[in-house]
Simulated assay, not measured.
Amino acid sequence: MTGRLNSAQPYVLGLFRIVVGLLFACHGASSLFGVLGGADGNGATVDAGTWPNWYAAVIELVGGSLVLLGLGTRAAAFISSGSMAYAYFKVHQPNGLWPMENSGEGAAMFCWAFLLLVFTGSGAFGLDRLFAKRSAASEDPARQQSPVAA
């Protein structure tokens, strides 16, 4: 049983990355463009250039999209995790110690989910893996054929 679970690990990790990235990107899109309920649930957007809300929304949209695609996953996840740590400690934690008290469950979960992806990478289905395979194939001299003189 453990062997089957271990063999499925990259695929489940890839699905985890896709779901987390999609949810994070949707959060950013709602704040920037007013879709999916908007920043306030009524279709509002954050004002461009305002600190920290607009910058957080850009990180959410771009970072979430990169994580969703599995492109630059570790770097995008690192920045996204940091932005959620900032959101938790600056926005939520002053309102109460525990996430259930301060409505910071989402920020805490995203922070830890992205931190996990920093250490695990993209898993299956990511563009990171596709590019790594292509790069390894082009650099492997055994796979390159030398011209044969006739």
Rank of each mutant, 00 (worst) to 15 (best):
G106Q: 12
Y11M: 15
I59R: 02
G41M: 01
A29Q: 03
G21D: 02
G123S: 07
N42Y: 15
F24V: 06
S122A: 14
L115W: 14
M100D: 14
Q9T: 13
K90L: 10
I79E: 07
T45S: 11
A137H: 13
S30M: 05
F33E: 05
G38E: 00
A137T: 11
S138N: 12
A76P: 00
K133G: 09
S7T: 11
C26E: 01
A76V: 03
Y86A: 11
R74M: 09
A124E: 11
Q9F: 12
A77F: 02
F24S: 06
N53H: 14
V62R: 00
G104F: 01
D40N: 11
D47F: 15
F119V: 02
S83G: 13
P52K: 05
S138I: 13
R17D: 04
W51K: 08
C26Q: 07
T45H: 00
I79H: 03
S31K: 08
G14I: 10
G72R: 01
Y55M: 14
G121F: 00
P52A: 06
L22W: 10
L23Q: 08
L68Q: 05
V148T: 13
S65L: 12
I59W: 01
C111S: 09
L13M: 10
F114D: 00
V58D: 06
L127R: 07
Y86S: 05
V46L: 03
A85H: 03
A85P: 09
H27R: 15
A132V: 15
A44T: 04
G37Y: 02
V20Y: 04
F16M: 10
F119T: 12
E105Y: 01
A113S: 14
K90G: 10
V12G: 06
R134F: 13
G64A: 11
V46E: 06
L22F: 14
D47R: 14
A39G: 02
G72L: 00
S30N: 03
S30E: 06
R17H: 12
L69Q: 07
A29K: 11
S81E: 06
K90A: 11
A108Q: 09
A85K: 03
L127D: 04
A76L: 02
F78D: 03
Q93L: 15
N42H: 15
D47M: 15
K133D: 09
G70E: 03
I79P: 00
W112R: 07
L13N: 10
L71E: 06
F131I: 15
S103R: 01
A137S: 12
A25H: 07
S31H: 00
G126W: 08
K90C: 10
A29H: 04
L13S: 07
Q144G: 12
